[in-house]
Nucleic acid binder design. Structure first.
Length: 494
RNA sequence: GGCCGGGUAGCAAAGUGGUAAUGCAGGGGACUGCAAAUCCCCUAUACGGCGGUUCGAUUCCGCCCCCGGCCUCCA
């Protein structure tokens, strides 16, 4: 059996993954702050850790994967004020969009999705413990974590205390004992959301939520804590400080995994720079699986340049994969297909080996293309139907590990993109993404069938000019025809 | 300044102590009424630079250069 190895940010090297309890693996990933639609950079960790969760489930009998939703935050309060609605409206809308977007990318829901607003008691309990143990103090309605009380502070991100102070670029609140101290609890004005506490009515700071929720749903020590690279400091550093100080120094997470950034034209894609694409916009330009494949084609720790050309290629790759399944399916009768489903092939060893090597999805995808898809087409050419069918099965199970090839081939080729016509609030116009616009003409299937029949008649009459005219007309409307031995089939090609 | 990641053909992206997959793009062919899809063949003197270790380095070590990131809004 292949042993899983993962890169641990804490040690900065690849380590063998040895769960605390092989009978129950626990993973926590930082989820979104729900004030705005998810952009593709937010989607990367979701897809990456979705693959990791699938892999862990394949390797261990029980896996609990928790991903939180931060639904109380100043950005949300600001957004609600801007829109003139209640904060709950902002969070409910955003969460609904988030779930729809992530589902479109083929990400399975996490086992648990704790929300801050429902975890306040846990946070207050942890804050109280920290105060009692001398790791936190109250000042002017705030409760702050005393960084000086934790000797290992800075270990995850590899920075010393001096450096932090030298690098501090924000004004230090006067009530802080130490410039590096961070807020656990802060006071709310009457018009701001708040909860009663022994330090007055207020709301949690940014970092305490994850510490408290991880403990609530997974326990004191977890196996893997994941998130984007930019969370390493200060967010995860602070989580470690809070959790380990509250729990008498007991380790918070055994492994820390961070995904790299998406870049656009060489620059980090981020909300603060404004150079981002929402998942919702991209869904109108490419199928969710194509977006997912593009995200997985680059190793998760490497920077990923997200481009139109990349999206186009990912779509082409999937077309080729689905085509093989379609060919295989067409050669089998329904009873055989049913038998396949009853006896799914296990994940090909090469694929498993690649994923076990610190989630090397790039290599897994390369091997799928090279050794499975190519092989399948070779068997097709040579007329080896049994081998073709085996290759198709292999492809299905390999792709399933990556969350790909999850629809049937017919549906894939005939799908219509998610053209809601509603641009996201922050869509970014002047970019390399977006050259492929959704088609304005949408043809219903019966219209297509009618056109195909007309073309067939023209072909029979050797009126090829008319036949080609019909084909060109369909092409202009995004319908591509393919003449095969069993007649003409079509696909949408947005 | 400190710390971190990356630099492989036109583009994308694996990998390796013995001179390097694959995809897209490009060229030719089979098939087709023509296409599409599929198949076959071909193409590129691609491992940022300089040293070191070695019989031999793109792969290990050192230094340097370039790009990007973090240093309390950020996935």
């Amino acid at each position: 059996m292949t042993a899983l190895h993962v890169h641990n940010t804490m040690t900065r090297r690849k380590e063998k993954f040895e769960p605390l309890d092989p009978a129950h693996v626990k993973m926590y990933v930082c989820g979104p702050t729900v004030y705005d639609d998810a952009h593709i950079g937010n989607a990367r960790p979701v897809v990456v850790f979705d693959v990791l969760a699938r892999l862990l489930r394949r390797l261990y009998p029980k896996v609990t994967y928790a991903r939180n939703i931060t639904d109380i935050d100043d950005k949300i309060i600001v957004r609600a004020a801007e829109r003139g609605v209640h904060i709950d409206t902002v969070t409910a809308d955003t969460i609904a969009n988030y779930h729809a977007d992530m589902a479109a990318l083929g990400a399975l829901p996490p086992d648990m999705e704790p929300r801050c607003t429902r975890s306040i008691p846990g946070m207050l309990a942890m804050i109280e413990t920290l105060v009692d143990k001398g790791h936190a103090y109250a000042a002017e309605g705030h409760v702050l974590f005393a960084v000086a009380s934790y000797a290992d502070y800075g270990k995850l991100s590899g920075r010393s205390r001096d450096e932090q102070i030298a690098g501090a670029r924000v004004e230090v609140a006067p009530f802080k004992r130490d410039p590096a101290d961070f807020v656990l609890w802060k006071p709310s004005t009457p018009d701001q959301p708040g909860w009663d506490s022994k330090w007055g009515r207020g709301r949690p700071g940014w970092h305490i939520e994850c510490s408290a929720m991880a403990k609530d749903v997974l326990g004191i020590t977890i196996d893997i804590h994941g998130g984007g690279l930019d969370l390493t400091f200060p967010h995860h550093e602070n989580e470690i400080a809070q959790s380990q100080c509250a729990h008498g120094g007991v380790q918070f997470s055994k492994y820390w995994m961070h995904n790299g950034f998406l870049v656009v034209n060489g620059e980090k894609m981020s909300k603060s720079l404004g150079n981002f694409f929402t998942v919702r916009d991209l869904r109108a330009r490419a199928p969710g699986e194509a977006i997912r494949l593009l995200l997985l084609k680059t190793h998760y720790r490497a920077p990923l340049d997200f481009t139109d050309e990349g999206l186009r290629q990912a779509k082409l790759n999937l077309d080729r994969w689905y085509r093989l399944l379609q060919i295989s399916d067409a050669l089998l009768d329904s009873s055989q297909k049913e038998a396949d489903r009853l006896n799914p092939m296990d994940v090909p060893p090469d694929i498993l080996r690649a994923l076990c090597d610190d989630l090397n999805t790039s290599e897994a995808i390369a091997r799928i293309g090279e050794f499975i898809v190519d092989k399948g087409y070779r068997h097709h050419r040579d007329g080896n139907l049994t081998e073709l069918r085996m290759a198709a099965d292999e492809l299905r199970s390999a792709a399933a590990m990556l969350g790909l090839l999850q629809v049937n081939p017919e549906a894939w080729f005939k799908q219509t993109l998610n053209a809601t016509g509603i641009p996201s609030r922050n869509s970014f116009g002047s970019s390399t993404i977006g050259n492929t616009k959704p088609l304005e003409v949408h043809m219903e299937e019966y219209e297509i069938d009618t056109a195909i029949a007309a073309r067939l008649a023209a072909r029979k009459a050797k009126n090829f000019a008319e036949a080609d005219r019909i084909r060109d007309d369909l092409k202009a409307k995004g319908i591509v025809l393919e003449d095969g031995p069993k007649g003409t089939s079509w696909k949408r090609d947005g």
